[in-house]
């Protein structure tokens, strides 16, 4: 059977993608951001997942205001990088494990998570930046080393799904993965955050203390952490910090007991605190 062996939490700041795409990652501003992913790149090469289940949000790129699904599962054969207003990122097309994605869609709905099925979808930086930081530079002619099943979560129009809902969705994703009859090593990504506010007069808010506590509690108190109300994210981690609810999907899909094998935190990347963590199931 397929099994989830590890989880990755990771910011998906668009400027990180721009820095990689324009070859300026060695500049003093960017060097510390990328330094923290060196170990991650070794780790994922070693781990070599067959499939990445990647939880992210679209930033008003593919989904406009006419249709706002809370959870949308990518079931297409592949997903092209989208033009977000400055041209598509020059990275490989993302290939799905389509049979597994459709199995997961069916399993989730019967498990009472009423997700939206996307049979055509482009993907924005929210999905491609985490792949880039973990796998390094790739050109459109390359292939990503793993197949990717995207789960797009609405965090743009309030309210995002609750942390509790996301955590329990993670558990349902795990049940779906484990009932798929193919021997596959699956790693789940929760992306977005950490503290940041992009808008209006309080833009630039960063809360390192809050971010650190969040990273700590992913291992020590994941259930308690998932109960945090939206207003705390908004007030303490900035209006766009509410993206962090997506990390609970990743955490819910792992064992109760996990080992933190890597952590990286840096301020700033553009307007944002960059946070990254790798958690492994103890049994795997």
């Amino acid at each position: 059977m397929a099994r989830i062996t590890a989880g990755v939490g990771c910011s998906h700041v668009p400027a990180i993608g721009v820095a990689m795409d324009t070859g300026i990652t060695d500049q003093p501003y960017w060097q510390p951001v990328f330094k923290g992913f060196e170990k991650s790149r070794e780790w994922i090469k070693e781990k070599n997942p067959d499939v990445i289940f990647l939880v992210y949000n679209d930033h008003c790129t593919v989904f406009d205001a006419s249709c706002i699904p809370t959870f949308a599962l990518g079931c297409a054969a592949e997903f092209a990088p989208a033009d977000e207003g400055w041209g598509p990122r020059p990275v490989p097309v993302v290939k799905n494990h389509q049979k597994m994605a459709s199995h997961i869609a069916q399993s989730l709905i019967l498990d009472e998570f009423d997700i939206t099925i996307m049979n055509e979808m482009e993907v924005d930086h929210g999905l491609t930046v985490p792949l880039s930081v973990m796998y390094g530079d790739k050109t459109p002619e390359d292939e990503w080393p793993a197949l990717v099943i995207p789960l797009c979560v609405n965090v743009v129009q309030y309210p995002a799904p609750t942390g509790n809902r996301c955590y329990n969705l993670g558990k349902a994703i795990r049940r779906a993965v484990e009932s798929f009859d193919e021997d596959l090593n699956v790693v789940i990504f929760g992306t977005g955050g950490m503290s940041h506010q992009l808008q209006y007069k309080r833009a630039g808010l960063i809360n390192q203390e809050w971010d650190t506590a969040f990273l700590d509690r992913l291992t020590s108190d994941p259930v308690g952490l998932s109960q945090m109300p939206h207003v705390e994210y908004l007030r303490e981690a900035g209006s766009e910090g509410v993206e962090m609810v997506m990390w609970h999907v990743m955490r819910g899909a792992l064992d109760d007991d996990v080992t933190e094998v890597h952590r990286h935190y840096h301020v700033p990347a553009s307007n944002t605190a960059v946070g990254h963590i790798i958690l492994e199931n103890k049994a795997s």
Binding site: V156, R202, L234, R235, S239
Partner: peptide, 17 residues
């Protein structure tokens, strides 16, 4: 709306949408 007292911030809720 328990988020209306956050300064310098608009929460993009259903009314704003």
């Amino acid at each position: 709306k328990d988020y209306e007292d956050i300064p310098g911030t608009f929460v993009f809720d259903a009314d704003r949408g």
